[in-house]
């Protein structure tokens, strides 16, 4: 493309924005508000997803062994467990360690254990998996190893947790797709009004032999500029919003694993701006389609 034509496109886009400044402000406002809502949902979904992943990664399989096993047999069970795919870590917990842990967990009430004549807890292993979804099948496999009496992982809790995290992911994705679609629809309608104001010009361009690309490009650039400005406003607002909200959450729920502002807000900001530009371009392209049919 010639340099002068590029100049023409940029000038036309800016002139058009200037000439329809009200419409341009409306488009920028719509993009900013829509992307802000989209951003809030994105943050919500990412944070819930992160919380879910953290909880999932903490799911352990507690493996209990028969009491009559010697150290060689215990090692053999450990090596058998290690052979299973997807094992993240395996820790041997002797019955002595197990009772000490129980004692410290009971805290003030640890005197209850003093009544016991001998340690009733078995030797065992704590196993964590790389992916939480592997837990049930792995527990099943471990329970079949000779010498293992039980492999427990809190079946009900884990299964419900999987359902909930899966639901959050699917729901979040659907919600964001819907919002993205709605945003494109609103933008294309707003831009349609500016195009409608210039429909005669477009028709004349068609009659004198302008290509569709030549006609489309200034409008697409206009959409991209408006999308960029809207995206910027939304990214700045979102960053401010997240810092305020995360401070509030941190004050009341210290343990909640929020996404850290840096670098996530930078990524989300860039994502929102790029998405704003894409929406602007898509909105212009969609709304121009009808006017190019001359």
């Amino acid at each position: 493309m010639k340099l002068r034509t590029t100049e023409y496109f940029l000038r036309e886009s800016l002139v058009s924005i200037g000439r329809n400044s009200w419409m341009a402000s409306a488009s920028v406002g719509t993009v900013a508000v829509s992307l802000f809502v989209l951003g809030v949902f994105l943050l919500l979904v990412l944070n819930m997803n992160r919380a879910a992943s953290i909880v999932e990664s903490q799911v352990q399989i507690a493996v209990y062994l028969r009491d009559d096993m010697d150290i060689g047999a215990i090692r053999w069970v450990g090596s058998e467990i290690q052979k299973i795919d997807g094992i993240n870590s395996i820790e041997f917990v002797s019955k002595d360690v197990a009772i000490e842990r129980l004692r410290s967990r009971l805290g003030d009430q640890s005197y209850l254990l003093d009544a016991l004549e001998e340690n009733p807890l078995p030797n065992g292993f704590n196993v964590t998996m790389r992916e939480a979804r592997l837990v049930p099948a792995t527990a099943e496999k471990i329970s079949k190893i000779d010498g293992v009496t039980e492999a427990k992982y809190g079946q009900d809790v884990v299964e419900n947790l999987f359902d909930i995290t899966q639901m959050i992911r699917v729901f979040g994705l659907c919600l964001m797709l819907t919002l993205a679609g709605a945003t494109i629809f609103i933008i294309s309608n707003t831009i349609r009004l500016t195009i409608f104001a210039r429909r005669k010009e477009i028709a004349i361009m068609k009659y004198v032999g302008a290509t569709d690309e030549f006609i489309r490009l200034p409008f697409v650039i206009q959409g991209v500029i408006l999308g960029f400005i809207g995206g910027m406003i939304s990214a700045i607002a979102l960053s401010y919003f997240y810092s305020v909200v995360s401070e509030k959450i941190f004050d009341s729920l210290k343990f909640f694993p929020l996404l850290p502002q840096d670098p996530y807000m930078k990524f989300i900001g860039i994502l929102i701006i790029v998405f704003g530009m894409i929406i602007g371009a898509a909105g212009s392209t969609i709304s121009l389609k009808k006017f190019l049919e001359v």
Binding site: K206, V208, G209, T211, D212
Partner: peptide, 13 residues
């Protein structure tokens, strides 16, 4: 459709 602009460049309307 992409050839139409080039047809119209040879016509004055």
């Amino acid at each position: 459709q992409s050839e139409v602009p080039y047809l119209r460049r040879g016509l004055g309307v």
